[in-house]
Simulated assay, not measured.
Amino acid sequence: MKSDRRPVASLWIGDKLHYLNQLCLKSHLMHGHPVTLYCTDDVKNAPEGVVIRPAKEIMDLDMALVEATSASFLSNVFRYKMIRKTGALWIDCDAFCHRPFPDEWDYVFAGHGMRGALNCGVVGLPADCALMDQLLDYYDNLPDYPAWWNKKQRKQMDRISEKGDLSHAAAIYKTERTAFGPQAFTWFAQQTGDIAKAMTPDVLYPVPFQLNDVFFDPYGRVEGHFTDATVSVHLYTNGTKPYWRRNPPLANSYVARMCADLGIDPAAALEE
């Protein structure tokens, strides 16, 4: 196993990892990728070998804004600032490393789901590029409305904003929760022309998120979705049903098999 592959990094808001997150972080270590986890709290249950760093090394996180939106909200800003500052490859904590990422890949992103819109769960970009510039400018200087919104979305946000209890960023999020994630990434990749660099879904998101339950099905054929190009397998924990977050996976399911292969004990890190 090569031990000097490109570094990967992610963000964790909270004090405890779920076993699915432990599994995904360790999978990158097992393929030789140095893993850094930027944290807001004192996380004690990260897999051995994961380097824990304070999230504030990259940016200050507005926890009140996180409370008004979601734990994943500010990660959409964080990932690009992290890439610009460190050059590491961004990985969501629910991205399982199937094969190591080639060192020569400068642009790492792909479509996902049934429609193929870009996702930003795994992202690699040059620290200085037009796409990075436009993404950071969007987050640092939020427009009145995202440029791609239609009249219906704008009116919906106006109704939310009129209540006066949310910040501008939170109002955008409440109107369309992906407006800071996949929607923004797709829009700005279209503006810069970098959408032409997108990989096919099988590279990073071989299983559509609509079929998320297959990872926990002992008779599911998860590997049937994989191709020779598959490098990462997104588990979509935001869409995982509460039962699977609170109970160990069934024997012979994909998640159970991967946990056994990597020495992760699901029962030791379930959602409470």
Rank of each mutant, 00 (worst) to 15 (best):
L204S: 04
N45M: 10
T192V: 05
F109C: 04
F209V: 08
T227V: 06
P34M: 09
G164W: 06
S253Y: 06
E271H: 04
W149D: 01
M30G: 05
L211E: 14
H33M: 06
F180K: 02
R53W: 02
T40E: 01
A229I: 04
Q156S: 13
S161P: 01
R221I: 15
A267F: 08
C120R: 01
S75Q: 15
R245P: 01
H31F: 13
D15K: 13
D92W: 01
R6N: 12
E272N: 11
I160C: 03
N141L: 04
W187T: 00
Q153P: 00
A88Q: 09
Y38E: 00
N238C: 05
E67Y: 09
I91W: 03
A260E: 15
W187H: 14
S10Q: 03
P248I: 06
V35C: 05
Y243S: 07
R246A: 09
F101S: 10
A88K: 03
T40P: 01
A9L: 06
A68L: 05
P100K: 11
Y38A: 02
L131N: 03
D62A: 01
S232K: 09
A196Y: 00
R5N: 13
F215V: 03
V222R: 00
A260D: 14
I13C: 07
C93F: 04
N76S: 11
P218G: 09
F216D: 12
T86C: 04
V214L: 10
Y139E: 08
W187F: 14
A196K: 10
P146D: 07
A88F: 14
R53L: 08
T178N: 13
T227K: 03
A95H: 01
L135V: 13
D4Y: 13
D41T: 05
F226A: 03
D261R: 14
A46Y: 04
P249Y: 10
V122E: 02
I160L: 10
L211Q: 14
D106K: 15
L131K: 03
T227S: 08
T86P: 02
D92V: 00
I160R: 00
H33K: 07
D228V: 11
